[in-house]
Write a protein that binds this DNA or RNA. Structure first.
Ligand SMILES: [Mn+2]
Ligand SMILES: [Mn+2]
Ligand SMILES: [Zn+2]
Ligand SMILES: [Zn+2]
Lengths: 150, 150
DNA sequence: CTTCAGCTTAGAATAATTCTAAGTATTGAC
DNA sequence: GTCAATACTTAGAATTATTCTAAGCTGAAG
């Protein structure tokens, strides 16, 4: 990685442009952090990871960049209980599993109709968004717990 | 309502006792506020309503009482996005609809299996809780919007 | 080269909630 | 009943995540 030219990724650039936003190195950096490790980091965690590559980036900028990425539809916010908001670059229809033991947040596939169909929404209600979060024990932690009981 | 004796409602008293908690007038008052108007008020709103009857109650006490009621299983917390936590005394299995127009939060029935069945949870995951929140337009607001377009 | 809108930044401000420490009330031996 | 132990309420301070503010920077367009 000796030459680091201005290779602006067109996909990010275009998406930003459609929302009237500019491409900036900070936005690129923040987006890369999210794509790099898809573990639903908080803004704080994104900040720490981004600082490795760009030591001068500020927390405010991380919030601003995350906001820009959400606005242009490349990233979504994930809220579990009232903990700090997490960020997810997977824009496919999915929901989230939160492990009460290790705290990991994992993607779970579900079709758009899926969870909403499971709810008995009375007629007259227009559902435009939904958010389903699941909590419990992830396979790893469930296995560990099983071992402790022999 | 001239005589206001110490009629301790046994149901609340028992529920508190099973969690090692005591009956107090403040807890009664806060619970009454929730039962009175089931519109999913925030702690702040509960505080304001409780003050009508008990002008000396404090915000900290409202938070403490709500916490006690949640602990003993009479009340559940409802989080929509990152707004202030709301409180719901309906302990039947249900999820919530949030109207983006008027901000109302309404109960929507759904069987325990419902929304989780709609998600394709891989085997190995143990789901102990789930939370489904729906957003969109409530019947009232949808009707109003329809009128504006003739 | 100037202008101007958009961007980044540090630090202040805000909002919801939790913590702290002090005073009260209730319980349950004795 | 007295007394100590425990639980509860309260005001205000502290905390946490997030947003706001104001100043300086940047890069495209004229
Ligand atoms: Mn995700
Ligand atoms: Mn409810
Ligand atoms: Zn786990
Ligand atoms: Zn409405």
């Amino acid at each position: 990685m000796l030459s680091r030219k201005k290779e602006i990724p067109e996909q990010l650039n275009e998406r930003l442009a459609t929302s009237g936003l500019r491409f900036t190195p900070q936005r690129q950096q923040v987006y890369n952090v999210l794509l790099d490790t898809r573990d639903h980091p908080t803004a704080e965690e994104v900040f720490l990871r981004a600082k490795h590559e760009s030591p001068d980036i500020s927390m405010a900028t991380v919030y601003n960049c995350l906001d820009a990425l959400v606005t242009c539809g490349l990233v979504r916010q994930v809220n579990v209980n009232r903990a700090a908001t997490r960020y997810c670059p997977n824009m496919n229809d999915h929901c989230h599993f939160y492990c009460d033991d290790c705290g990991k947040v994992l993607d779970v596939n579900c079709t758009s109709a899926g969870p909403v169909a499971g709810a008995k929404v009375p007629s007259g209600f227009q559902v435009t968004h939904y958010e389903l979060s699941l909590r419990g024990h992830c396979p790893d932690c469930a296995a560990k717990a099983a071992k402790l009981h022999h």
